[in-house]
């Protein structure tokens, strides 16, 4: 059986080439493998199926704000651990980890900007920071955003993505729902305009406060939006949820969002809405 013997040192299996794993990305909508650069150019929307990838505030704000127009308000607001919350993990450690991982101070950024020349107050949330949960800092930032929109008499726009109230701050987190809604009551009769943009996913305390209180409510295609999370509902009813349940299209059909707008059309749609109500 000579011919099975290796004559020379033989073939060497090539070393596994280091593939930068952030070069390609698999679409969660259609499974297509996408070139990351292409995806970024397409505002993180799959060019094949239109799936809207989740985005943080760092990516979302530049999509809406005019170049170099964004001035962040209260960037140094930081969470504390008011309850000394400790279960399997300490909340203070969780905060540290989240900050390190995301480079953010908390789950929401808010600032002044212009959108196609219109001055606005613009906020965006970060699902990547402890599930986009709303604790005291998120509530305070939204609240300050409302104050500035009132002072400047300019529209307020908030892009939501959140799992709900942040349980690690206990009752104080629940009160942020009350706080943001109470502040919004100050602009609910005479303006300025408030537009909420619901992105994937927005559930719990954020939906059940400022999320659903927009004068105009816009959702991104396919965004999961609801009060209870799908897992909880599934447990309650003991069966699988219907296809498309709690998705943006479902909410529109049920009458809870004004429109579904694709990400690449969001800026022009918002400036059209602002122009319409700016009619003085």
């Amino acid at each position: 059986m000579n011919w099975f013997k290796r004559v020379q040192k033989g073939l060497r299996t090539s070393q596994k080439r280091e593939m930068p794993d952030n070069l390609w990305i698999k679409c969660k909508g259609c499974g297509e493998i996408l070139f990351r650069k292409e995806l970024e150019k397409a505002l993180h929307v799959c060019p094949k199926c239109g799936y809207h990838f989740r985005m943080g505030s760092n990516l979302y704000i530049p999509i809406l704000a005019d170049e170099n127009s964004y001035r962040e308000i209260s960037p140094n607001l930081r969470s504390v651990d008011p309850l000394g919350f400790k279960t399997s993990k300490k909340y203070s450690d969780q905060l540290k980890e989240a900050k390190k991982r995301t480079g953010l101070q908390d789950a929401c950024r808010i600032g002044e900007a212009t959108i196609n020349g219109y001055p606005v107050v613009l906020g965006a949330m970060d699902f990547g920071f402890i599930g986009g949960s709303m604790g005291s800092v998120v509530g305070e930032k939204v609240s300050r955003g409302i104050d500035i929109a009132r002072e400047n008499n300019c529209p307020l726009i908030i892009v939501t993505s959140s799992g709900g109230a942040r349980m690690q701050e206990g009752i104080l987190s629940l009160m942020q729902m009350a706080k943001t809604s109470a502040k919004l009551s100050l602009i609910s009769e005479k303006g300025p305009l408030f537009i909420s943009i619901l992105t994937d996913p927005t559930t719990g305390g954020v939906t059940a406060s400022f999320g659903m209180l927009g004068d105009i409510i816009i959702a991104e295609p396919g965004a999961l939006v609801g009060f209870a999370g799908p897992r909880v509902i599934k447990q309650t009813i003991g069966q699988d949820l219907p296809e498309g349940f709690q998705r943006a299209e479902f909410l529109m059909e049920k009458g809870f969002v004004d429109m579904i707008v694709e990400r690449n059309k969001m800026k022009s749609r918002i400036s059209n809405i602002i122009r319409f109500f700016n009619n003085d």
Binding site: M177, A178, S181, A182, L184, S185, S188, T207, A208, S209, F210, G211, M212, L213, V225, G226, F227, A228, V232, I233, T236, I237, L241, P242, F245, Q246, K254, G255, F256
Partner: peptide, 26 residues
């Protein structure tokens, strides 16, 4: 807790609660 069911979601549990928070504030 507020009921986490299919019908509750369909009929806008989040909207109903949000609206109450705002209206009760004023």
């Amino acid at each position: 807790g507020a009921f986490p069911g299919l019908g509750a979601e369909e009929r806008g549990q989040a909207e109903a609660i949000a609206k109450n928070l705002l209206e009760m504030s004023k």
